[in-house]
Amino acid sequence: MEVLRKLLYPVSLIYALVVRIRNCLFDVGVFKSERFATPTLCIGNLSVGGTGKTPMAEFLISLLKDDMRLALLSRGYRRKSKGFVLADTTSTVGDLGDEPYQIYSKHPEIAVAVDADRRRGIRALEKKVSPDLILLDDAFQHRKVKCGFSILLTAYGNLYVNDRYLPTGSLRDSKREAKRADLIIVTKCPEQSSDSQRQRIVRELNPEVHQHVLFSYLAYGEELKGNSHNVSLDYFRGKNPTLVTGIANPEPLVAHLKGSGLRFEHLRFRDHHDFTENDLDQLRRKEYLITTEKDYVRLNGKVDNLYYLPVAHEFLGDDKNTLSTVLAVFMSQF
């Protein structure tokens, strides 16, 4: 692996140079950024995945939806549709993509839309929905929109300051762009992270004066939800189920299941994997399947005995209150 990284290192240098030139052209105004009348809040990262964007979007939706008319706009990665699509009761995973479909299924009370052209998507939402706030999912690097407030996520085990650029690492944007964030959230922390550990990370990130750094961990549900019934983790003891994952970083889930005393087979697919008939035939031969919620929405109805373990962000210390306060200050400007 180290030999391969050395061989690909020149490619990473070229990639980093191209990314920096692009950002510079936005900074000096050669490439234009557009600001919209409707407040926009961006949730994103500098890497290709694995920081928990979807659970964070769901956390923010739950936090804000009772006080304002919310909309969420996503690219809808690997969806089958084109252009702008506003979710409704007839929408499918193919129409929206797995993550927006998951969010709409859990939060049908908010407007969920997909469009690769974020500016066009925002205009369509303003015309059709007139929201008080638009959440822009995975849009930190999409600089054609000048967001009102930006939340940058970075995973505890792979901080962007220690990461490499593609293809030798997972960085897709320049580390220098972290300065544009209003808030940095370190996700997937150990639940018992000490003050000294958090202070060490803050020193590593070296935030700007205006930036808050918050810390969250993944809290897994005690019950798995299935396509026929719900069960506890104890249900699978001695049954050797198969774990199926098509996400960027399944290691926290793997560690949680092992820590719960489960023995299982792990079939790992790439992020947003489009399960083929051969894949499904293989899965149908398994007695019990455990998966992630994102994979569940793509597999439900295609295989039996399928279960997923819910997961949500929880904040350490008083960081949830800090987040609420910072967002309230942002919204008070409108």
Rank of each mutant, 00 (worst) to 15 (best):
Leu233Ala: 06
Cys189Asp: 03
Gln199Tyr: 07
Asp271Ser: 06
Glu109Ala: 02
Gln199Thr: 12
Asp279Arg: 02
Ser324Ala: 10
Leu243Met: 10
Leu280Ile: 15
Lys286Cys: 13
Leu306Gly: 03
Leu283Phe: 05
Asp195Trp: 10
Leu316Glu: 12
Val297Pro: 00
Thr292Asp: 05
Val114Asn: 04
Pro252Val: 08
Gly50Tyr: 10
Ile151Gln: 04
Pro250Gln: 15
Asp281Ile: 11
Lys146Pro: 00
His107Phe: 12
Lys128Thr: 11
Asp115Thr: 02
Arg20His: 05
Gln141Asp: 04
Ile61Val: 13
Leu70Phe: 05
Met68Trp: 11
Ser130Asn: 12
Gly157Arg: 13
Arg20Glu: 07
Ala87Glu: 01
Ala57Met: 06
Ser12Arg: 01
Ser332Trp: 12
Ala87Gln: 01
Tyr296Cys: 04
Val231Gly: 06
Phe84Ser: 02
Asn158Pro: 03
Lys106Thr: 01
Leu152Ala: 04
Phe149Met: 07
Thr154Met: 07
Asp234Glu: 14
Lys258Pro: 08
Gly76Cys: 02
Gln282Cys: 13
Asn45Cys: 06
Tyr217Trp: 13
Ala116Cys: 11
Ser33Ala: 11
Leu152His: 03
Leu262His: 08
Asn249Gln: 15
Thr242Trp: 10
Ser150Phe: 01
Ser62Asn: 09
Asp27Glu: 13
Gly301Phe: 08
Ser130Trp: 05
Glu2Asp: 14
Gly259Met: 09
Arg180Asn: 10
Val112Pro: 00
Arg270Glu: 15
Thr168Lys: 08
Gly259Ala: 10
Cys24Tyr: 14
Arg176His: 11
Arg270Phe: 13
Val202Lys: 13
Leu64Asn: 05
